[in-house]
Design a binder for these strands. Sequence first.
DNA 1: ATCATAATGATAATCATTATCATCACCATT
DNA 2: AATGGTGATGATAATGATTATCATTATGAT
Lengths: 137, 137
Amino acid sequence: MSDRSQFRAVGLKTTLPRLKVMEILENSGERHMTAEDVYKEMLNLKEEIGLGTVYRVLNQFEQAGLVERNNFESGSSVFEIKSDSHHDHLVCMKCGVVEEFFDPSIEAQQEKVAKMAGFQIAGHSLSIYGFCSDCQE
Amino acid sequence: MSDRSQFRAVGLKTTLPRLKVMEILENSGERHMTAEDVYKEMLNLKEEIGLGTVYRVLNQFEQAGLVERNNFESGSSVFEIKSDSHHDHLVCMKCGVVEEFFDPSIEAQQEKVAKMAGFQIAGHSLSIYGFCSDCQE
DNA sequence: ATCATAATGATAATCATTATCATCACCATT
DNA sequence: AATGGTGATGATAATGATTATCATTATGAT
């Protein structure tokens, strides 16, 4: 599905800033970008855009289910293209690298926990913090 | 252990603001408070304190291992007295109530995941978001 | 091509949090 | 109990992330 039709499907007009933001999220090596990251990359590519627009567009994309927001422990949100498959994160506290993982048994166990507490589950966020293989003294 | 000796043990002088902040965290019905919450409660109790001091003290308590910080999806950190036993959270997206849980199998599975990815685990944060039993239409 | 409407960019505003710094309180020592 | 050095406080300003405002501009249905 093209970005164009993706946007149409969620009621967003196809504009240059939206196309560019999506393109950066898709093509940037870094899968987890802050609004600021996206903005800077945009400037690198000699594209005109306002930082406010980046924030606005990312929020709209999140609302629309096109991207996913994560709040690690850094003080700013990071965004990534929403993949069809849910996953959680391993975050390196030294170099900041983020690895993704999916563990069915953890997922299943969460369902159980929620059910036991009478919670209707809507989502969850699991981040494991530590040091990646390159960052252990 | 009294707050007084607790503070001494971690190299913090025993001061009125620190005693009061700790007292509020201990006695407030709400276990997960923002700095602002603590500050307002302080004013309620007719105690003089600066908001900056609340932030400073909470950070020191966190450094010292006396309280634990959590970043749910609200944009501001919440603090709770650090209990000896680790736990994760179920957060109601409507009323904001927070329930705690501990699930050994999830914990164990996280260890496995980290090991497989070559990560040296330092901590983790698992929050399940949903609707508590009182908040389901 | 026209036009209503939504989107943009520049800017100001807000919110959470931290830094600064002069004044003040704690507490080990006298 | 008085003293003094050092750490702590409070008021304020500063910062960083994010959102609101609003006049101008671009999109897409007609």
